[in-house]
Design a protein around this nucleic acid. Structure first.
Lengths: 200, 200
DNA sequence: TACTTTTTTCTTCTTTTGTTGAATAAGGAG
DNA sequence: CTCCTTATTCAACAAAAGAAGAAAAAAGTA
């Protein structure tokens, strides 16, 4: 139908106005989210961005560089922490869950899912996820409101949140995959709260 | 040092007594466990088993066939269920956790970790894990002892168990990765028990 | 023993993937 | 405008991986 879309584009620099770096990052986040590090290829990412695969090398030095750049969280951890720590500590779990669900369900949140999906094959991803749980998020939440055993509590929170992400977004087991945020929160918040402030 | 280990082996059938099929399955479980479906290659699996890569095709039809065969659980689900369902329902979570930890910490348990590791890249693995959670294990536990909302409870149990497996065996976050079974059980059992019989 | 079947090794093919380098055109500095 | 830098496309390469087929030796059968 119609013309051949694949007529050769002219070589050389494109007209200004297109931000290829950002477009590649966007496409990379989506591909890594859907397929994990191994499953996503430089070629499919570039195609999704409408770019040449070589641009990945030009801008990020290679697939690994793109991966690391793509997984820089698009949300600000400090702001997230503020939202969670504001309010009564006894209901912090609820706020944690609401925050995670809203981040996951919006576009940018794919980064976390991409991280989870890539853990199996990419040691870098495992390291990033460890850091994320133990320092960036739960380490700080726990040290702010938990009474004791900070590291264990952070790890336990990690099990619940990572498990939720796996079930809901990667494995997609019903009815959890399609449940509304409130259902999920009321089901899981009490358990998470125990990890935060309950007796172990 | 010494002789060249790679002197050509004679073609044709080997002397009897070697069970190549089982050796391949063993090696495959280990490789899939350590590297996931994509990371493990037919060549490394065969090398680990001391076999020629072509044997994978001969015995299993290809890498996919080997994967499916390797992930047939080496433990009997019926026996596991019996052990869990025997006893007071109010302490079933404890028995679930003890069972999982003992299976995971023994050799054969790698199959479940391999499954988790492979979920990202292999749709078959996601399907198997879904089935495992919803039918083979938690579906039956829940329908035996839970008061209501069987499917949601099974999925919730799945989040906690998969999350634990990820944290302890794949991401390896301390202190959870090195904690003894009793520490893990006393920390997590109450939460899992709520998913089984508590009010949601 | 003679013949067939099964198991095994080696070689080869094809596909996929990450990466590199040359050629080319737009942007920017003087 | 002129020249240099930067961005982009295309073609090609090398490595890796899954798979297929031929050849050969052991096992099984009559």
């Amino acid at each position: 139908m119609g013309q051949d879309d694949k007529r050769a584009r002219p070589r050389g620099r494109r007209p200004a106005g297109e931000n290829t770096r950002a477009a590649l990052l966007d496409a990379a986040r989506q591909e890594f989210t859907e397929r994990g590090f191994d499953g996503a290829t430089v070629r499919t990412i570039a195609a999704r961005a409408g770019m040449d695969p070589a641009m990945v090398n030009h801008w990020f030095g290679g697939k690994d560089g793109l991966f690391v750049a793509a997984l820089q969280l698009p949300v600000n951890p400090d702001e997230i922490l503020r939202r969670i720590l504001d309010g009564e500590p006894q209901r912090a779990a609820e706020r944690v869950l609401r925050t995670f669900l809203s981040v996951w369900d919006t576009e940018g949140g794919g980064a976390l899912i991409a991280l989870v999906r890539s853990v199996a094959s990419h040691e870098e991803a495992a390291r990033m996820l460890r850091e994320f749980v133990s320092r960036v998020i739960f380490g700080r939440i726990v040290s702010a409101i938990a009474p004791d055993q900070f590291e264990l509590r952070a790890a336990l929170c990690g099990t619940q949140i990572i498990g939720l992400g796996m079930m809901r977004y990667v494995i997609r087991l019903e009815p959890l995959a399609s449940a509304g945020p409130d259902t999920v929160i009321s089901a899981i918040a009490p358990n998470l709260q125990r990890y935060l402030t309950g007796t172990l």
